[in-house]
Amino acid sequence: MATYGIGRVVERTLEGRARGGEHSLRPLLFLGALWFCLFFALLFLVVLVATTLLDGAARLDLRLFTEFPASAPERAGARPAILGSLWVILATAIMAIPLGIAAAVHLEEFSNQKNWFNRFIEVNIQNLAAIPSIVYGMLTLSALALLGIANKNMVWVGALALAMLILPVIIIATREALRAVPLEIRQGSLALGATPLQTTLRNTLPAAIPGIATGTILALSRALGEAAPLLLLGGLVYLTFDPNGFASGYTTMPIQIFNWTGRPQDGFHELAAATSILLLVLLVAMNAVAIVIRNKFQKRW
């Protein structure tokens, strides 16, 4: 997005010069500043990725996947954190996807959009999407306190916070995907004697699935990289067993990274870098899948 914007400005500035219109210094300075910003941002990214790769490449081996955390870096691995991340994301998906899609379908297909209450909800979903993730951690924490649940370190508890975090994103993405399905499709279905519910379930929703999948995958990738709410919910633990269920104790990759970077030994920093690479690869892969789905199914009508 940002690069696109800059590209446009550059294009226009160059166009202006080509037409011989603008010879003053200011547009050039502005252009230079933009390029510098872009360069700076990219530089950071490149340096970050490069140092991570350099630091972590040595430890990006099988041990990372098979070993448990240990007091000596040579013997340590991220196995429970990797499994924990998978469990947490799975639980998050189970909680957030059906609820998010159902909410979006209700808002988009069935609710009366002129009703003040529905408009109020709509505005607030937009707002919720912009709330810092730690707030959801605090919310979950207080909910647990109210329910009198003392053991916070359970997969479903962390997933609950993450599900709330990505719920607005899924709702917004699903609504947009539903809105992209032409009205004529719904009319065609209703004109054949289908009920509104049948129309939604058999026609509108399936037609919107690519858009929903794209939005959902992006939302899950955000949840995968989150550490803040989980730290608050006691996700920072020293695990010597495999997380093996929704009520199991867990830690996740971002938390494991956070933990290892805090240690003094270089060996742990290497481990943190290796885990970061793994996390990066996962995130890039998820984003790539989302983009592929989006491009493949774009503009079908």
């Binding site: 004529e184 065609g188 279905s189 004109a191 054949l192 004697g193 289908a194 009920t195």
Partner: peptide, 27 residues
């Protein structure tokens, strides 16, 4: 009982077969 054909062709984003079978199925 009283069907409707619209100005702009509006086939469902499904196979030809499923487009036809859709009405009988939902009914």
């Amino acid at each position: 009982r009283i069907g409707m054909v619209f100005q702009k062709p509006n086939p469902f984003p499904k196979s030809i077969y499923d487009n036809i079978a859709y009405g009988p199925r939902v009914n």
